[in-house]
Nucleic acid binder design. Sequence first.
RNA 1: GCGCCGGUAGCUCAGUGGAUAGAGCAUCAGUCUUCGGAACUGAGGGCCGGGGGUUCGAAUCCCUCCCGGCGCACCA
Length: 560
Amino acid sequence: MAIGRRIPPILAGDTASDGQTDRKRDSRRASSAGAARRRSGRQNPGHPSGAPDLEHGTGAGSDRIFDPGRRGCFSRASMAGNRTIARYYLTFAGEIKDFMSNEQLAAMAAALRRIVTEGDAYGRSNEGADQKVIVEFVSSNPNGPITVAGGRSAAIGDVLASLLEATGHSVTREYYINDALSSEQMINFGKSVFYRYLEIQGSASPIEGDEPPDWLYEGDYVTAIAREIAASRGGEFEGADLDDPQTAYTFRALSQERMIARQKADLEALDVRFDNWYTESSLHDAGLVSAVVQNLTERGHTFEKDGALWLRSTAFGDDKDRVLVRANGVASYIAGDAAYHKDKFDRGFDKAVNVWSADHAGYVARTKAVVAALGYDPSRIDVLLYERVRIVKDGELIQPSLHGGGALELKSDVIDEIGADAARIFFLLRAPETALDIDLDRARKADGDNPVYAAQSAYARVLKTEPVASIDDTDFSLLTSESETSLIEKLSAFPGEVSLAARERAPHRLVQYVRDLAALVPSLDAGAEVSAARTVLLDATRIVFKNAFALLGVSAPERM
RNA sequence: GCGCCGGUAGCUCAGUGGAUAGAGCAUCAGUCUUCGGAACUGAGGGCCGGGGGUUCGAAUCCCUCCCGGCGCACCA
């Protein structure tokens, strides 16, 4: 919407450049005025003089006249106040001449000056006040490639981290490797690699019957690793016992490094890089897990039952008590997680943001409970849950195959198909709490239906103009068309959008913003007069695109 | 059964208690011409799942019901 600009029918033919636009403005103005009249007619009788004072509570006897623009309009972008003025003109004075106040022009000019002056820094702020935040995302067992769900986590976490950096937080990106010795998943994984190893070595399959055992990881990558081990170590392990835990440990140890390297490569293909890869096993090795169990016991928050040690997490808002140490003496996952989160705070982080898939929703309460039991404010943990991802190809959902290990892979199923830029944008196309279907065909199309193409080609269009050397003498009053004022309004909203997206942990807002911005660009081209003001506008648009792309971690190609 | 997340235009989805609830696609109309896809401009299309409540004001907050997804381990 334009900034308070309306053209009455009687003047439209005189001021606008072509008849078609006239009709558009004409009809808009008419409906606007009508709506405004309806609105005011409704409002005045509806709000007698006894309406409460908005600023000072209900103050009986206040005769303040209700002001519909009071909060929403005045508190918005820097130019917003003028919008209200324009609206009042419309509402009460009716037909107004092509209207743009000096204040509006000044605000537009100031907005453009600010963008061009701040350049790369435009959109950044220091709201975070150097608060130390750790963003933990993707985190999984090192027992397979990164899945598409992991990809969504990666995109959300990485861009959220960038948003937090842009708003002045000190940010660490961390991947938590769930590699504890006691992990059932990892034991089964080690066992699976050994199983495949025996097959490769030509030993008789250790399992009788045709049905694969339910603990078996069936992905091709398991066989691939087993093959590598067979190649480098030969028959060394052929005599090992499948059911001996030590065998699983050995093969897990042999596989783990390769799997982590694979995961790292998968994520780098998405341009996601972590500051830390933090292993769960290191917590156990350092004695931090037993220490935290002891800590909780000393605080009186544990009890014994059925041979296990329990945390009385119900005392801290959880719906059930949780086992910390199993009857077999092995620490539970939550014990490790308690140590991990304590360690985050011990490392000096003020806030811990965790990006988890929605099937971990039930885990939030117990994690906060554990942290509270340890004496920390649970609000220092912020969990961002994201819903499932599906992939559509040729109009149909891709089904995960057994040889893929039962899950779609980030690298081969998404990035290899559409590239890292499109993958990042599509992962962030929806709010995290919304289930997401990624249509690969749409991501490859070169048209407006593809948000990546739309954004990058809009960017390429505004690159065509050379930036001006000085903006001091620019006459911004030339920028009065609706397409121009809408664009300026959008550009000036960028810093607020960055800050909101960071605050609300809503990185997808940035993608929405870029889409909206891109939609405003094409209409600028037609009949554009070459003016300094116009050049500044294009340059400002270029800057905002570039900064938004940088936050999103997508490239800003100079030509499409 | 309990808990969490969704339900907004034909479709896929945005939307910070505040202006006439928006975008893309689809549909329809028009414009341009490089006759190749397209691009551009506009139009139509909404009881914001139902019902209560709070508020000057609710898609937004509260209660309740319905529908869908997910979770409810001495797995992680």
